[in-house]
Structures are given as structure tokens and as C-alpha cells.
Design a protein around this nucleic acid. Structure first.
Lengths: 234, 234
DNA sequence: TCAAAAGTGTTGCTGTTACACCCATGT
DNA sequence: ACATGGGTGTAACAGCAACACTTTTGA
């Protein structure tokens, strides 16, 4: 095959997504959870896998990620970013190129979605046996999230439109796996000038906490010269 | 099409690479240059494009990137990393998914390669009219390089195995587009403990400069849980 | 009034920047 | 000897971590 020639045959392109959200059991600290689907066919029938599907010839990659996500789990993420394209020949018996996305989901949206057959939520630190190399892919997605939280506002993808600094700090703590100093955390986030204080407070057991919302019209993460991909299905 | 169903048809997968190297005209400061190939067919016949080719069904993505690179330009990069997978429907009349890599090439290797027909080198800041969205892709590759140079040793991908700190600093300065303080630069790089001083010096016009080599068996850039892809063609 | 979270102040540490200065070589 | 890049020293500054402290509420 030469450079300018056409390939003899096409290759099947799969799109799948690691959807991360926060989940809390009772009053404990939240944990990162993600939905997996049980495979019904070989290869790896019976094993759990990232939700996804085949790329249709009439749609873009990000659109396909959002579509297959909705079809398999009924979920609509608040943040979606391409993770990596995998294409080793030994990943599957028949040749497949797999473009993987990672997504963040608001806690409330995860609860609101109807439970679906063959879809289960797993704690990211306690995963079942996974199909293909999906275990490593999830590791990579979590690594990317931990990294990105350090220099962007992605953590807000876990939160509702209005939230307290304690909410935000809790999300950071869950992602990073360590406690953060509330005083320093406050100063650091408002040094970024990306949070807009509202006049509302969350009243609870103690001193009320001011609610913030994120600056609108600003992407949660800087993707450089690449504009965020279109994810509308229309 | 349902999740578990097979796609009706395969999709052609293209692999192309933005190959960056340093190039100097006379005694001036070096600039980033990259090779482009002139397209001989539609779409965009006559326009310049990133070197690449079609993914063969029997090879991995990174292998295909290295192979098509060698076939179209005769070059073998010192560093190769996946950049992004593009798949918007309107990129090409017929549906194509394009997996783009970016690579670094040692200055010497660029000069050593025989000049090939339809391959020309361009200054990264002075590009011709490019096919598809390749102009934006090159912007993205340069952005990634600028970013990565801040927290990794990728810049050494431009340099021969042994180099002086001035060589390395010059590479950084070219990538970042600004002068760096030699004194501070020295301290910063040896704080990373990744450079091994040799007993050799480069003797020239002034005080001889010690030659360094990079710590072997260490990847130039941290890619997280993803092990570097195999690029051997065998 | 007390516990606990919200929020402010302050101090010491660490890494960076700027730049003065000495060293070693070719011309 | 002197110009020039190699290489060291150091003081000022900025950002961050640690933690003492004040404020405001519910119980």
C-alpha cells in the first residue's frame, strides 16, 4: 500500500467513554464511581466494559461518544473530552480502532437517570474484571482527571450550577485523594477569578456558606488551539 | 444501529504526523521546522499536508505513524506521541477518521535524510496553504510541545545524545519563543537530576562547555498509566 | 453556651527571578 | 589583554502550606 493509494478495506471504529461521577454512601466521604455495561457477546462476554458503540459514518467522534452514552446508559455528561485512540492489533480478534472519551457527570444527573438493564455503577477503586484493556483505560482517565484538576476547573463538572466552596473542596479532595486546607483552598480558587459569588447562602447545621456559580461562557478546561468538539446529535 | 450490533461498513483510518525539528539558517537563532508533502490527488490536490497514510489492518496506530513517516519522508523520529483523533464528518468528502501523531526529530537526522520528491520543509511560523484542517493541527502540536517542555524532558528529542547546557537552553528558547537566564536554567535542569554530566567538553571559541547526556532508560515524557506505544515495524 | 463549619490573618518555607560576579578559553 | 560564553553566589520576591484566630449559625 502506498501513501496515496486507498486502503483495501475499512476498519471498524468504536467509541466508548469513561463516565466519572461522585457518589456518596450515607454521610461518608464521596467516592468516584463510574457506570459499566456487561458484555453480552464475545469477545469477553460476561465481562464488564466501558459503555460505547460503533461510530456511525454520518457523525463526528464526540457526537458518537455522546450518542452511545445516551443509548447505553441514558446519561448526559457535563464535560466530555477525548482521552486516547487505541489501535493495537491484539486488542480484539477482528481489527478495531477504539476512540475513548472521558466524561464528568453531575451527581444529581447520575441519580436522576433511570436504572438500566446491564448497567451497573462501580466504585473506581473497586472494579470488577474488565473486558479488553479497559482497566488500564480507566486508570488513565483517573490520572488525567487528577492532573487536570490542578490547572483547570474541571472539578466543577461534578457539581450543580450553584455550590459552596466546601462542595468544591470536597470534589477536589475526592479526586486527589487527600484533605485540603479550607483556608488555603478558598484563597487559591478565588485567586483564579473564575467563581462568581451569589447572594444566596446554604443554611444548614452551622454558619451558612455562600453559594458560588462558575463564570459562564468559559470552558472548564483549556484545550489549547483545539476548540471543544461539537457534541450535539442534531 | 444498536450498541451490540456490528457497523454496516468499516471506516478508513488515516494516520499522519507533525514532525518537528530545529533548523538554523547560518548563525541565526534556530527555528522550528517541519516537513510537509504536496498532495497529488483530490481533495486538496496541490495543497501541502502532513505526511501520513492509511492504517493497515495488521499494524498498531503508532507503528503505522512510524511506517508512513518513513515511507513519505524517510525520517525516523526520536520521540513520537499521539496528538489527537479527528473525525468530523465534514473533514473530507468520504468519511475518514484521522489519528494524528506528533514527533520530534534530531537536527542531524533531518539533515541526513535524502531530500525526497514532493517533500519540503517549512518554517513553523511561515506555513503555506494547508490541506484539510492541518494548519490547526500543527498549531495544536506546537502548543502541546510548548506545554510539555515545561514539565518534561521532551526538548532533548531535538538534540543529539550528548549536548551542552547551552544547546539544551537554545532548544527551550526556540520552543518557548523567549530568552532564558543561563544561570537559572542550569540550576533548574540539574535540580531534576535527569542529566548525567560526562567528562567530555565541547571546545570552541570560549571556555569549554561540559557535555551532558540524558539519563538512559527513562522516557522523555511522563505519559501516566499509558506505557509508550510500540513503534517497531517488525 | 457550645460545637462546628465559614471565613480571615500571619508566619515561615520553597522555588523563582534578576543580576552581580568569577572562570577559562581562543584570538 | 580582552571579549565571550561557562559557571557560581545571592538578595528580593511570589506563591504556598501550616495553623492560630474570629465569625456565625443550629442545637
Amino acid at each position: 500500500m502506498t501513501r496515496s493509494g486507498q486502503p483495501e478495506e475499512g476498519i471498524r471504529v468504536a467509541v466508548s467513554t469513561a463516565i466519572l461521577t461522585l457518589r456518596r454512601d450515607g454521610a461518608q466521604a464521596p467516592r468516584i464511581a463510574l457506570p459499566l455495561v456487561r458484555r453480552t457477546r464475545d469477545p469477553h462476554a460476561g465481562a464488564w466494559a466501558l459503555p460505547g458503540g460503533w461510530l456511525d459514518t454520518r457523525e463526528g467522534l464526540a457526537t458518537a461518544a455522546a450518542r452511545t452514552l445516551a443509548e447505553t446508559t441514558g446519561l448526559a455528561p457535563s464535560y466530555l473530552e477525548q482521552l486516547y485512540a487505541f489501535g493495537a492489533v491484539d486488542r480484539s480478534p477482528s481489527r478495531v480502532v477504539s476512540v475513548v472519551y472521558w466524561a464528568l457527570l453531575r451527581e444529581e444527573d447520575a441519580l436522576g437517570a433511570a436504572a438500566q438493564e446491564n448497567v451497573h455503577w462501580f466504585d473506581a477503586t473497586d472494579l470488577p474484571e474488565l473486558a479488553f484493556d479497559h482497566a488500564r483505560i480507566i486508570e488513565y482517565a483517573l490520572w488525567r482527571l487528577r492532573n487536570k484538576v490542578g490547572y483547570s476547573r474541571v472539578a466543577q463538572g461534578f457539581l450543580p450550577p450553584e455550590f459552596t466552596l466546601a462542595d468544591l473542596r470536597e470534589a477536589y479532595e475526592t479526586i486527589l485523594g487527600r484533605k485540603l486546607d479550607p483556608a488555603n483552598f478558598r484563597r487559591q480558587v478565588d485567586a483564579t477569578r473564575t467563581l462568581i459569588p451569589t447572594n444566596a447562602f446554604r443554611t444548614g447545621n452551622h454558619r451558612p456558606a455562600r453559594l458560588y456559580r462558575d463564570a459562564t461562557d468559559v470552558e472548564l478546561a483549556d484545550r489549547g488551539p483545539l476548540s471543544p468538539e461539537e457534541t450535539r446529535t442534531s
